[in-house]
Design a protein around this nucleic acid. Structure first.
Lengths: 293, 293
DNA sequence: TTCAATGATCAGGCTTTCTTACCGTCCAGG
DNA sequence: CCTGGACGGTAAGAAAGCCTGATCATTGAA
C-alpha cells in the first residue's frame, strides 16, 4: 500500500540538489551517473510524481521541492541512528550497570574503574554494592549486567567466572592475646568471644564450623562490626579483602587450619548476552584480575 | 563508513518481537520464515552485534532491546513521510497558491472555488488579486502557481491557456445620452468625458485608440472609478466581466465598432511543472471554464 | 559549426533477496 | 521413552534490483 522509501535514492536526490547536477552527484556518491538517473527515476515512479523537471537541467519540481526537506530530515534521522548504534557496538558510547560485594567495591573497583574509563573514556558505569545474595539477585533479575561477588549457590541461568581466591582470617584488636600470631588454627579460637558477620557462612562445612555455635553476636553492618572490634568486645573472621586496613588497631591473622577461602569472580547472565559496553567491562575485568591470579 | 539501515529488515525485527517469533513474523509480513531469518542475520552482521539471542527462542539481546525503540521510531517516521507524500500525490493534501485579476476573482472564482473544494475537500487554496501585470509577475516569480488573467505580453517562461473572451463596452450612468443604446461604435464616444482605467489599454491598436488621447482622467482604483461614474462625471470602457453590476444606475453598452475583447485564460509556469494540488486546480479550471467557452 | 557537458537509455553482469526444501533442537503428549 | 509438532537455522536455485560501461540526444558556448 504505502511505498517503501529506501534511503539511498533519497540520498541521491539530496546529492543532485546539493552538487547541482547528476554528474556531480554521481561523483560525490562514488557512483556512475546512470546509477543516479535510474535511482531517481525509480523513486519518482514509486511516488507517482516527478521530482525533477524533464528539460535538461537538474531542477526540482514543486513536488520535489516539497519533498526535499522531508527527505533530508529522514536521512538525518537515519544517519544519526546509524552512528549511534555503531558507537554502541564500538564501545564509544553506552553504559554498564554492575554490582559488587562491598569488599570488592571498595578495594578493587576504584582502581579497576579508573583504568576502565581510561581505556573507554566514553562509557559510563553504575556500581551498586551489597552482599553476595543481593548481587546475585540483581544479576539474575537483569537489573545489572555484571556482578563481582563470591558464589554461594549455583544457578543455571547465571555464569560465574572465578577470578581470585580470598583467604579467611581472624580479625582482632592489637592488644588481643592472639594479635601477635602469624597464623592460626581453629582450636586457638575456642573460648574467644566471636562476633559473626555476613561472611561467617564461609566457615560452614569446615572444621571450624563449631566456632559459629559459640558466637554471641551476629553483626552484618561493617561499620558496627569494626566499631565492636576496635572496642575490644570480641574477634571475628573476615576474608582478607574485607579486612578494614584503615583501622590501625586491628590485626588480620590468616586461618591456616583449616584454610578457608572464598572464591571471588564475575557473575553474568548465562543465557542472555551482554550489551556491548558490558562486554567490554567483562573482558576488561577478566584481563585485569585474571593476570594477578 | 556508517552502515545503511534498510527499512524492511528493521520492520522484520519489530514484527518478530511483536508477533513473538520468526514464523509468526513471517506470516505477518507475507514472507517466508527463512527470509525473515536472513534479513535479521544480514542486519546483525551489518551492525556487528547480534539482536536476538542464539538459543532457540526469539529473545532480544540487551543490544537488541536498546535498538528496538529506535528502530520503531525510524520506521514510524518513514511511514509517516511515505503516507504524507502519497496524500500529496493523490490530492488528499496540499495547497494551491493562485492569483487572478479582480474581475475574475470576484465574478468567477467564488463559484469555482466552491465547486473545487467540493471535489477536493482536503486541498487548501490561497487567492490573491491584482492587475494583469501583477498576476503575471507572481506567476513568473513562482510566488503563485496559477494565474487567471488576460495576457498582455508573451513570455517564453510562461504558458497561457485561453479560456474565455470578454467583450469591452462603454459604462455610463442611466441618464447619460448614450444609456439607451443597444450597441455603440467608437465615433459615438467622441467628445464625451472619457475616464481611463487600467483596462483602457485594450483599446490601443484599435480604431478606437484616438479616444484615449481625449480622456481627462485616469483612475485605476475600481471603487473610485465607479464613484465617478455614479456621480455622472464621465464614462469609461470596461470588459463586461469587470462591469460592476451591483450599481443600479450604471449601464453597460457593448462596443461593436470596433469589437474589442480581452482574452482571459490560465497562466502557468511554462518550463516548471505544478504541484499535485495545482495540477488538480489547473485541470479543474480548464474543465469548468473550457466548457462554457 | 563544432565541441564539451548534461541527462537519458540500454545491454550485461553482479549482488541482493526471496523461495523451496531440508536439518537439528526442544518440548509435550502418548 | 519416544515421537510429533513447532521452532529457528542452513543450502541451493531463481527472481529482482542495482550498478557499470558504452552510446545517444540535446543544449549552450567558443
Amino acid at each position: 500500500m504505502l511505498p517503501e522509501l529506501k534511503i539511498q535514492p533519497l540520498r541521491c536526490v539530496l546529492a543532485i540538489v546539493d552538487a547541482g547536477g547528476f554528474h556531480a552527484a554521481a561523483r560525490q556518491l562514488h557512483r556512475t551517473q546512470p546509477a543516479v538517473s535510474m535511482a531517481v527515476r525509480e523513486l519518482e515512479q514509486r511516488l507517482g510524481e516527478p521530482l525533477f523537471e524533464k528539460g535538461g537541467k537538474a531542477t526540482l519540481t514543486p513536488f520535489g521541492a516539497y519533498c526535499l526537506p522531508r527527505f533530508r530530515e529522514l536521512i538525518t534521522r537515519h544517519d544519526r541512528l546509524s552512528r549511534e548504534l555503531a558507537a554502541q557496538v564500538q564501545k564509544q558510547a553506552g553504559h554498564v550497570d554492575m554490582a559488587a560485594v562491598p569488599s570488592v567495591a571498595s578495594r578493587l573497583m576504584p582502581r579497576l574503574l579508573n583504568d576502565f574509563i581510561l581505556r573507554y573514556p566514553e562509557l559510563r558505569v553504575s556500581l551498586q554494592d551489597g552482599n553476595a545474595d543481593f548481587v546475585r539477585r540483581l544479576v539474575a533479575g537483569g537489573e545489572v549486567e555484571l556482578g563481582l561477588t563470591s558464589l554461594w549457590q549455583r544457578d543455571d541461568d547465571l555464569a560465574f567466572t572465578p577470578l581470585m581466591r580470598d583467604a579467611v582470617g581472624v580479625v582482632c584488636r592489637d592488644d588481643h592475646p592472639l594479635a601477635g600470631r602469624e597464623t592460626l588454627g581453629w582450636e586457638a579460637l575456642q573460648g574467644q568471644v566471636l562476633i559473626r558477620n555476613g561472611t561467617s557462612r564461609l566457615l560452614e562445612g569446615t572444621e571450624a564450623e563449631p566456632l559459629l555455635a559459640e558466637s554471641a553476636f551476629d553483626i552484618s553492618n561493617m561499620i558496627s562490626l569494626t566499631a565492636m572490634l576496635v572496642a575490644g568486645i570480641g574477634i571475628t573472621t573476615l576474608p582478607r579483602l574485607a579486612f578494614p586496613e584503615e583501622y590501625e588497631r586491628l590485626r588480620f591473622i590468616p586461618l591456616v587450619d583449616p584454610r578457608v577461602e572464598r572464591e571471588l569472580g564475575l557473575l553474568r547472565p548465562g543465557r542472555r548476552s551482554l550489551s556491548p559496553a558490558a562486554q567490554a567491562m567483562e573482558a576488561f575485568i577478566i584481563e585485569a584480575l585474571g593476570e594477578t591470579d
